[in-house]
């Protein structure tokens, strides 16, 4: 089944301004990890807001798990989508960690005992169980984002959207958050949509959509996308380390059979070359 279908979506903030999104069409299978990449101002965030009805398409439509997004279906659709936003502080609603995780459950009128069970479970899933009664002022950015993830896990959504969720974190915080999401996807088969300008993060995806100037410029697997160096540059992005290294090796006369994503792959390819010589 299709988890997300976006059909000819266009959006403008007001009649006088230019289109921020133009004729964007794509679909995501349930359980897939998809990355939407582009520089700041490419229309990525506007796209996210169109997916859960925070903004209404100027034209085109959004279908989530078979339901078309309308004014009537918006609250039901929001139940199926959990979003982690960019700024760790500005999405922390609760006065303590556990209160924050509970916030969405309270909104959905989950009974008290069930709520306590889910909060506890979700916090241990993100490794924050020991911090349940802490106040946000005493947490790092990475920890706050893990709490935001727990708030989403507790709601058991079908789709998790990471809207630049790691861009304000230090490397440790970033890898913690991404590891948890990867682990969740393996275990629960949720659909993950990560909106990012970090292609290292996008490399984790099954599919990458490249957005520039409000238009979809390319779709493909990470390998397919990373082999198109000109495209990446035009979109204002930079290749992840391993594909970049492969490119630079090519330039200095070392021919590699294909584009590699992981260090291990590239090293063993180099070792093969080394043995042959």
């Amino acid at each position: 089944m299709k988890s997300i279908e976006v059909k000819q979506l266009s959006y403008r903030y007001s009649a006088e301004t230019e289109l921020v999104l133009q004729d964007v069409t794509f679909s995501v299978d349930a359980g897939q990890w998809i990355a939407i990449v582009g520089h700041n101002g490419s229309g990525k965030s506007t796209l996210t807001k169109n997916l859960n009805g925070l903004l209404a398409p100027t034209s085109g439509e959004v279908v989530i798990n078979g339901t078309t997004l309308t004014e009537d279906s918006v609250w039901d659709i929001r139940k199926q989508i959990g979003i982690v936003f960019q700024n760790p502080d500005n999405q922390f609603v609760g006065a303590t960690v556990e209160d924050d995780v509970a916030f969405g459950l309270e909104n959905r009128q989950i009974p008290h005992d069930e709520m306590h069970r889910r909060v506890k479970k979700a916090l241990s899933d993100v490794g924050m169980a020991d911090f349940a009664t802490r106040e946000p002022a005493h947490l790092s950015g990475g920890q706050k984002q893990r709490v935001a993830l727990a708030g989403i896990i507790a709601m058991q959504p079908a789709i998790i959207i990471l809207d630049e969720a790691t861009s304000m974190l230090d490397p440790k915080g970033r890898s913690d958050v991404l590891n948890i999401v990867q682990e969740l996807q393996d275990r629960l088969h949720v659909t993950v949509l990560s909106v990012t300008h970090d292609l290292e993060e996008a490399a984790l995806a099954d599919q990458i959509l490249v957005l520039d100037g409000g238009r979809l410029q390319a779709t493909g697997t990470p390998k397919e996308i990373f082999s198109q160096v000109a495209l990446i540059q035009r979109a204002g992005l930079t290749l992840p380390f391993v594909p970049q290294l492969s490119e630079d090796l090519k330039d200095s006369g070392i021919t590699l059979p294909e584009t590699y994503l992981s260090e291990e792959e590239l090293i063993s390819a180099l070792w093969q070359l080394h043995l042959k010589m």
Binding site: K49, G82, N90, V93, M115, H116
Partner: peptide, 26 residues
Amino acid sequence: SRAGDLAIAMESRGYNGETERTRYRV
């Protein structure tokens, strides 16, 4: 701008200011 972000985050998590909510803290 913080308030704007917060409102978006709250709405995304199903808060609409009208329906009855259950309470985590009793």
